[in-house]
Structures are given as C-alpha cells and as structure tokens.
Design a protein around this nucleic acid. Structure first.
Lengths: 106, 106
DNA sequence: TAACTATAGCACTTTTAGGTAAGTTATTGT
DNA sequence: ACAATAACTTACCTAAAAGTGCTATAGTTA
C-alpha cells in the first residue's frame, strides 16, 4: 500500500527539472554525439556541470554512455528508449519558446 | 541585426525552467485559484518560495494577479493567454511522468 | 622525450536557492 | 479592547548549486 498521494509533475521534475537536462537531451534527439561535441552545443555550461548532468541522466536511464577504449578518450552519449520517449515534450518546449511573442519583441 | 544565435530551449528555460514554476502553472490550468488554495496544492513549497515564484511568473506575463481590496486580503492567481499557451506542454510533462515505467516499478 | 589529445575527477570558492520565524495590514466577530 | 484572519514582506541563516583551476591518463606525432 502506498500512502503517498500523487503529486502532479513530481516525478517528471525529479528527472528532468533542472536548467541543463532538457537542453542536453534536446541535442541528442538527432542521434548520439561525442562528449566534446555535445558539450559545445550547450552554451554556457561548465565542464563540471556537463559531466554531472550527463551522469545523472545516465543514472536515471535517459541517456546511454558509450566508451571507446582509445587514447585520447572517446565517449559518446545517446538517448535510451526512455530518453527518446521525451522527444515530443522536448520539441514542444523548444517550439513554444521559439514562437513565444516576447522572444521576438523584447 | 541580432548577433546572438538561436539557442534551443534557452528562452523556454529562462521562463519556466525552475523546480516550482511548472507545478504552479499546472495547478492553474483548471482556472484561477486563491493564493492560499494554490499554495496548498504545491507540496513542499515554502511560503517564501511560493510568493517568489508567482511574482516571477507574473512579471513574465504567464500568470495574472487579481487583488480584491478586502480585509483580510484576497488574492487570486490565474493564467494569462500566454500562460494558457503552455497547457499542452504542462499536460504532456505530467502524463509522461505518470506513465513512465520507473515511476511504477521502483 | 616532450607536447598534444579528449574526457573527467578533485579541491576549493563563490553564488544562488531555499528555510524559519517574525512583523504588517485593516476589518470583523467576541 | 483584542484576537483572528490572508497574504504577504523582511531579516537572517543554512544548504545546495555552480564556477574555477588543477590533475591524470596513454598513445600518437613532432
């Protein structure tokens, strides 16, 4: 028996409710990317926050980390099936922002 | 001429990319609510964060603050048209979390 | 042999988010 | 007279998030 009542958005916010996670996930929608390439696509993120963000996304099963045993290191990040299920939401978020009036007028 | 390139999700994240904003907005989807009622619907939020959150949402034109000049005070919050345009996204976020497997199995 | 590479970890500091408790308001009911 | 009320506001403090700079790795190329 579960005594905790359902709290709207609670689960979702715990998984992707941070500043960087949706942005990182968004850039993986078109396919896996090398670590450095992905990081460059996220303007303003620090090295530390990037690592921390993808680590959490990996822990939560939203992204997959593929390590190639070469030197210098090569690591790719891609969406898992669970991560891909966010596609609609991520595209909606982006297109909302792109179409929102204040984005154009200010 | 605008020299800044378009950064996906940047605008969206600036407006609603915090822990509390999506939750507050979600609870207003069915119509305006009195301040106290709305706050009770957001579990775990402190009085201070609630006030701060709705103030920012108001500043950004996503919610409307309606003050009734009575004593004791009566204040209602409702979505603006701009706020209502988030409806699809908010519902998607909620239903994603509700259907996400790990939410059931863990 | 020394520099370069891509990725990430670590220690340290700063910045921001957030919590707690108190005070403010003006009218109504006791 | 005074307590109760709803919605804040402020001051003060702690905890969490995030930035900065340094380190390690090991094979390839100059």
């Amino acid at each position: 028996m579960n005594t905790k009542k359902y709290c709207p958005l609670d689960h979702t916010m715990n998984l992707i409710g941070t500043k960087w996670k949706p942005i990182v996930l968004f850039h993986l929608l078109d396919g896996a990317l090398r670590s450095g390439v992905l990081q460059k696509k996220v303007p303003g993120i620090s090295n530390k926050m990037f690592t921390q963000t993808v680590r959490e996304l990996e822990k939560d099963g939203l992204v997959e980390r593929i390590v190639y045993p070469v030197v210098p290191p090569k690591v790719e990040y891609g969406l898992t099936e669970r991560g891909k299920s966010l596609k609609t939401i991520l595209l909606s978020l982006d297109s909302w922002g792109a179409n929102d009036t204040s984005n154009k007028l200010v």
